[in-house]
Design a protein around this nucleic acid. Sequence first.
DNA 1: TTGATACAAAACAAGATGTTCTGTATTTGA
DNA 2: TCAAATACAGAACATCTTGTTTTGTATCAA
Lengths: 188, 188
Amino acid sequence: MDRRQKKTREAIFKAFTELLADKNYNQISVQEIIDAADIGRTTFYAHFETKDYLLKDLCEELFGHIIDTAMGLPHGHYHYSCENTTDSVFLHLLRHLQENDRNILELLSSQNNEIFLRYFKSNLKKLILTQYADKGLLKNARLPEDYLVNHISSSFVETVEWWLSRKMKETPEEITEYFLGAIEPILN
Amino acid sequence: MDRRQKKTREAIFKAFTELLADKNYNQISVQEIIDAADIGRTTFYAHFETKDYLLKDLCEELFGHIIDTAMGLPHGHYHYSCENTTDSVFLHLLRHLQENDRNILELLSSQNNEIFLRYFKSNLKKLILTQYADKGLLKNARLPEDYLVNHISSSFVETVEWWLSRKMKETPEEITEYFLGAIEPILN
DNA sequence: TTGATACAAAACAAGATGTTCTGTATTTGA
DNA sequence: TCAAATACAGAACATCTTGTTTTGTATCAA
């Protein structure tokens, strides 16, 4: 990719992220992004059709990355159905978050974080499916697999949200225990 | 309240709700609401400071109502920790939804339903707290009560969302069983 | 070096926003 | 029932945002 493209694309992402940190998505105008990124008006629209597409691309880059690294971890290594939390892929994700990789925390704690939480959840579903579906962990006599996957990924996202709302007082290990404590009982 | 005020307020709510049914919140302009409600420009701004405040008021009216009726039910009558689902307050809520009281379904299934789901969840927390906190059901050795309340209300909202995404194929009774099946194991 | 591409700057129409003003209809309360 | 208060309509307004177009310049890649 052209160096110029890359540079402006990152400048836009950076400006957008910073604006999102202290402003509602709806209240951010394209003009503000343009000014903050210090680029020409034409340039923005050459990169992104609308503000919504910018958001979409940013989310895909952020959550695609964080989930991909988790996907890359050895499959057989993680069992969230075992007692100890130290091997959980969820613990890995929480530590990743704690390091605030790519300023993702600002977005997840921002005013209308639902947008980002939705992407988070959507990517998480894939992770859960690819890693655990074939292990039979999602077989539950009372609950459909689809419902279970949705429940697990949703619960993790909410757990993260809850953690953030408490300013991350707890350690990733504690949060993992809470989460597994809420999820394990319904797995076989 | 003045009949005129009431009338225009409801006209605005109606127009807004209808617009939300087939359009994203961000893409709805105040002008469109004004046109759809067939009121004067001045009138809108006399009622609502901004579009955001309109949304807030609408949500409070909708979810305040649906939760209040559930609150009004006899407390001792419902136990979500018992085996049968027929007495659950959650079943009552689902039936309420199925009747599509006040066109709430259109909003919960709309493009950016996160806004409404957030209000739903927020009101649900109050319901769970006032009805079950004093029963000791939320005492769990492994999990903090605050985390539990958040987990339960979040799970119910997601369950509803999941139900809607499947076009409500299942009956309220089936959904209640799924939900209780995911929640009961972590209660004492 | 050359052709292609990315960018800047400016101008543009169309539309949205929120306010202000004037005049009319309706309600409320005395 | 009458008068004062209130709610509303309509229009005009300055200001901002949006997305496009045009022209010219700088930078890249081969």
